[in-house]
């Protein structure tokens, strides 16, 4: 049984993490993100009480928001001012087929899943300009700023995107927002074979391999996006789609194979980074699949 903590201020989060002696997992809305690896921990820290917009500067197109906020909540708030984060406004089928389900910001940033407007509008690493992070010892530190362009110091916030909260807990985020008016349409194509079914396999290939990958994916595909050469598919846990040179995949039903790193350099660097940022290995231990 997981002990659950639901702090409502960044200080509470910091106190809790600083004092924690057991491994902590983070999650906000669901017990476990579908694309997560299985994690053994005894405490769950949820940000579901740490929500809401802190500051939205409409004319500067900058918003500061608590990371427990749902993506849909943020979009609604921004939408009132004609702004958004540039996700496609997908119909529910498309959203399901591309796994762009509504989630807390902390989860969305932690998993950094591809989305249907990636090629046209970039992704989290392009929209996030600042972060307040709670470190494993409970220290609160910020990186980045509220300026849309900034090269002062090391861009530690980038390291946190896709890091599955294994290096620190992203507690507050500063985004650059986009005008709703200029939002392009997504070119994502949804397969009618799997309506309502979520993908278990996400793959990105080189554009030159994309046609072949779509062919190979065949009826397994739930959706594909030509612009970013991304495919979404349903696969059985012990099967996969054809692989292509330099491609990468993410999985949701393959247990320890949900995330794998083959390159020894990358494995070594991930280990080293984890040791530096979380020396006692208490933040989402095993979240990156490397122990």
């Amino acid at each position: 049984m997981l002990k659950t903590y639901e702090p409502s201020s960044i200080e509470e989060i910091a106190n809790f993490l600083g004092a924690a002696t057991e491994p902590v997992v983070f999650d906000s809305s669901v017990p476990s993100h579908p694309f997560a690896l299985p994690i053994k921990a005894s405490c769950l820290l949820s940000l579901k009480n740490y929500r809401g917009v802190i500051e939205h500067d409409v004319s500067d197109q900058v918003v500061v928001v608590r990371a427990g906020t749902l993506l849909s909540e943020l979009q609604t708030e921004l939408g009132k001012q004609g702004q958004c984060l540039p996700f496609a406004q997908l119909d529910p089928h498309q959203a399901t087929a591309t796994s762009t389900f509504d989630t807390s910001l902390v989860d969305a940033i932690a998993f950094n899943l591809p989305h249907p407007l990636h090629r046209q509008c970039g992704s989290w690493r392009d929209w996030i300009i600042g972060v307040r992070l709670v470190q494993s010892d409970g220290t609160i530190a910020k990186c980045g700023s509220k300026a849309v362009k900034n090269v002062a110091g090391y861009d530690v916030q980038r390291l946190m995107i896709g890091a599955r909260n294994s290096l620190g807990l992203v507690a507050e985020v500063t985004f650059k927002t986009f005008p709703l008016k200029g939002l392009p349409n997504s070119g994502v194509q949804v397969s009618s074979d799997h309506l309502g079914k979520a993908p278990t396999w996400i793959q990105r290939v080189q554009p030159s391999d994309f046609e072949s990958a779509v062919q190979a994916g065949g009826r397994n595909l739930t959706a594909f996006d030509y612009a970013s050469s991304t495919l979404w598919a349903t696969t059985r846990p012990n099967e996969g789609l054809k692989r292509f040179p330099g491609d990468w995949i993410l999985r949701s039903n393959a247990e320890t194979k949900n995330l794998e790193f083959a390159d020894p350099t990358v494995v070594r660097l991930i280990k080293r980074t984890k040791e530096l940022f979380d020396p006692t290995n208490k933040l989402n231990p095993g979240a990156m699949g490397i122990v």
Binding site: V151, L159, W248
Partner: peptide, 23 residues
Amino acid sequence: ILKLGGKIEGAPGYDFIGLIVGS
């Protein structure tokens, strides 16, 4: 000698290139 990233963006893992650029 370290080789990081490749020709396809958005790969899972820590964003080392994002840290190195600008350092």
